[in-house]
């Protein structure tokens, strides 16, 4: 009870009731949503979850990573590879997947922070590692090389092997997204969370008052990479295929960053709101693009929407929206 109070301590009753209602709605959603809308909701939750994971590094600790595809790709490849080659189920495989991604995050983080790379320089380091790994996987036959790795599709629901229909995947990603929200809230309320915010605002001042800056940044990278790896595992088993040129692509990394940036960097609910906005726009523009039949038109709409959002809501949609709705989340 004490822990719960700490988690919900400074939320208004209105916030808590809205959150409970949203959760209930999401829990019941598969009962009354068709196949298409369920798939859209799955996409939203996926981007909300993976955005939440990225938000820890950038939103909380202030380190711009543009290479998070590395952790999702590693996680997905390892869990899928273990299942494909040895029949080791994803629930066991994810330990290896998470460990590998956390190790990769620790290596990238240590090198970047130890050599005090910041801003664009750190971002480029993360991109370089992701690209480097992509080329490595293209030539690694265990992982299927550039031809890709394919998992057998099995419609019978089997939660143990993560084989089954969209409803099962929906509940798994819902659990992940909800869990990540709670975890991030707990992290932000912890000493570590306060240290991160101090580092984000002014790393030198934080160092001066005794914050263990390197260790805190490293923890942000490791936790974020581990969470991102889970998204990768889920993604690999949901789509049943993996290709190095998409799994480790820079576009995949960018995709991960968009929901939290659009939603509101460093806010807990921003990744979710950003995912709703972006996925909603993406689906609407797909329909419009199909109707017009011009290649690239969907992306043009999408680019215009991004441009409008970044020009008029540079701090993200959620801080503005939450104030409008009277939903209290203290922006840390």
């Amino acid at each position: 009870m004490n822990a719960l109070r700490r988690l919900t301590g400074n939320c208004t009753p209105r916030t808590l009731w809205s959150l409970a209602a949203l959760l209930l709605l999401l829990l019941l959603a598969p009962a009354f949503l068709g196949k298409y809308w369920l798939s859209v909701l799955i996409l939203i939750l996926y981007f909300a979850y993976v955005g939440q994971a990225w938000n820890i590094v950038m939103g909380f600790a202030g380190q711009l990573s543009l290479g998070h595809a590395l952790y999702a790709g590693l996680g997905g490849y390892i869990a899928a590879g273990l299942f494909f080659h040895y029949g080791i189920g994803p629930w066991a495989g994810l330990f290896a997947a998470v460990a590998a991604a956390a190790l990769a995050g620790a290596i990238v983080g240590y090198l970047g922070f130890r050599f005090s790379l910041a801003g664009v320089y750190f971002a480029l380091l993360t991109i370089a590692f992701s690209e480097f790994t992509r080329i490595g996987f293209e030539h690694w036959s265990w992982a299927g090389g550039s031809g890709g790795l394919f998992l057998k599709v099995d419609a019978a629901s089997n939660l143990l092997d993560l084989r089954g229909g969209p409803v099962m995947f929906y509940y798994v990603i819902l659990a992940l997204a909800a869990g990540a929200l709670v975890l991030c809230r707990a992290l932000l309320e912890s000493r570590l969370g306060r240290y991160w915010l101090a580092i984000r605002e002014d790393a030198e001042a934080a160092q001066a008052v005794g914050v263990p800056v390197l260790r805190c940044k490293m923890l942000a990278m490791v936790i974020s990479a581990a969470l991102t790896a889970l998204a990768g595992v889920w993604n690999a088993f949901y789509y049943n295929n993996l290709f190095p040129e998409t799994a480790f692509a820079m576009s995949r990394s960018i995709e991960i960053t968009l929901a939290p940036i659009i939603g509101g960097l460093g806010t807990l609910f921003g990744p979710f709101v950003g995912a709703v906005v972006l996925t909603g726009l993406g689906e609407a523009f797909t329909d419009a693009g199909d109707a017009l039949g011009i290649p690239g038109i969907k992306q043009i709409f999408y680019g215009l929407a991004l441009l409008v959002i970044v020009m008029f809501r540079p701090a993200g949609v959620w801080p503005w929206l939450s104030a409008r709705l009277g939903l209290g989340e203290r922006t840390p």
């Binding site: 543009l66 971002a123 690239g296 992306q299 999408y302 680019g303 991004l306 970044v310």
Partner: peptide, 22 residues
């Protein structure tokens, strides 16, 4: 902040490359 510049130029990039594609 860098992430805002990044998002702005990313939007410009998307418009340019897909304009060429269209």
């Amino acid at each position: 902040p860098e992430h805002q510049q990044f998002l702005l130029l990313l939007a410009v990039a998307i418009l340019l490359v897909n304009g060429a594609l269209a």
